[in-house]
Design a protein around this nucleic acid. Structure first.
Length: 279
DNA sequence: ACGCCCGCCTGTAAGC
DNA sequence: TGCTTACAGGCGGGCG
């Protein structure tokens, strides 16, 4: 579910909530969530007694920097949520998979019905700046500024459909199905255009659309669809779904030209577009 | 190297 | 009112 804007929203809120807090205990209620570790006990042992020094993000991954130089990595998968509980007495939501209790009181709870999400502790280097398990991730569209020429070279070095490339985490980290469609609409480009066949103007439009769409979505605290599965740290829904131009708008009028937004299947997944505005 | 498929899971909505 | 099928913000692997 959550893509870069949702993860970044959670990260910003986490900074004020958990930095400086010491982990008293960790409860693993579903071992699948910590599957990279040999055991739940092993995962717990690497967290208990540690203090959270920072909260970062790499693509769709949250990175909790710990006082021993290691990093707690959290990926929300399709249905994962982090919930901040001020009191231990608050009833636990169904599918609560991991509970972190702080010595200063309060908990951080990982809730994930589909269990595609995961948590693991990484023996990071360079003071937590480098996570070996995430070395495959490409550049971060909001953190890593680059020139259009450089972006053009990267695009042309792959011969892929634009949507596949935007969603390829090894190329650029953090874009998923919602924002790929929104970015391509903003750029006026079809999902099936080839990445090595763009004009200079199209490359600039795509880069601008990528940065501005994601930044705008962060300002609106991410997208919550009809099922409202995406919730922030405090259980509030995002606001960006109201700004969507094409995603989940099949059959509705394009906000720019009034043509009908269509949905097509590509690679087994839904793609929404305006065939008049996107060429 | 890329496009397409599947599996991993649970919940919900649509279809018959 | 059922039962069955399709689909969902992700990711990794296998195949042609």
């Amino acid at each position: 579910m959550p893509e870069l804007p949702e993860v970044e929203t959670i990260r910003r809120d986490l900074q004020g909530e958990v930095v400086g807090k010491k982990i008293k205990s960790v409860e693993v209620r579903n071992g699948r969530t910590v599957r990279r570790h040999p055991s739940a006990k092993h995962f717990r042992a690497r967290l208990e007694g540690r203090t959270v020094k920072s909260v970062g993000r790499a693509g769709k991954y949250l990175l909790f920097g710990l006082d021993n130089g290691e990093t707690l990595v959290v990926h929300l998968g399709m249905s994962g949520q982090l919930q901040r509980a001020k009191s231990l007495k608050e009833p636990k939501a169904p599918h609560t998979q991991v509970v972190v209790t702080f010595t200063q009181g309060g908990q951080l709870r990982f809730v994930d019905p589909r269990t595609f999400g995961e948590l693991f502790v990484s023996a990071t280097t360079e003071g937590g700046a480098h996570v070996p398990e995430l070395a495959h991730l490409g550049f971060d569209p909001l953190e890593d500024v680059m020139s259009w020429d450089r972006f053009w070279v990267l695009l042309a070095s792959r011969k892929m459909r634009l949507k596949s490339l935007l969603m390829d985490q090894e190329f650029v980290a953090g874009i998923g199905n919602i924002y790929a469609d929104e970015i391509l609409f903003a750029a006026g480009l079809r999902y099936d255009r080839m990445s090595d066949a763009l004009s200079a103007q199209e490359v600039r439009r795509l880069y601008r659309a990528m940065v501005e769409t994601l930044a705008d979505a962060v300002k609106h605290r991410g997208s919550s669809l009809a099922d409202e599965q995406y919730r922030d740290l405090f259980g509030e829904i995002g606001d960006y779904q109201g700004q969507h131009q094409v995603y989940d708008r099949e059959g509705k009028a394009c906000r720019r030209c009034r043509a009908t937004v269509v949905r097509v299947k590509s690679g087994g997944r839904s793609t929404y577009l305006c065939e008049h505005c996107q060429v």
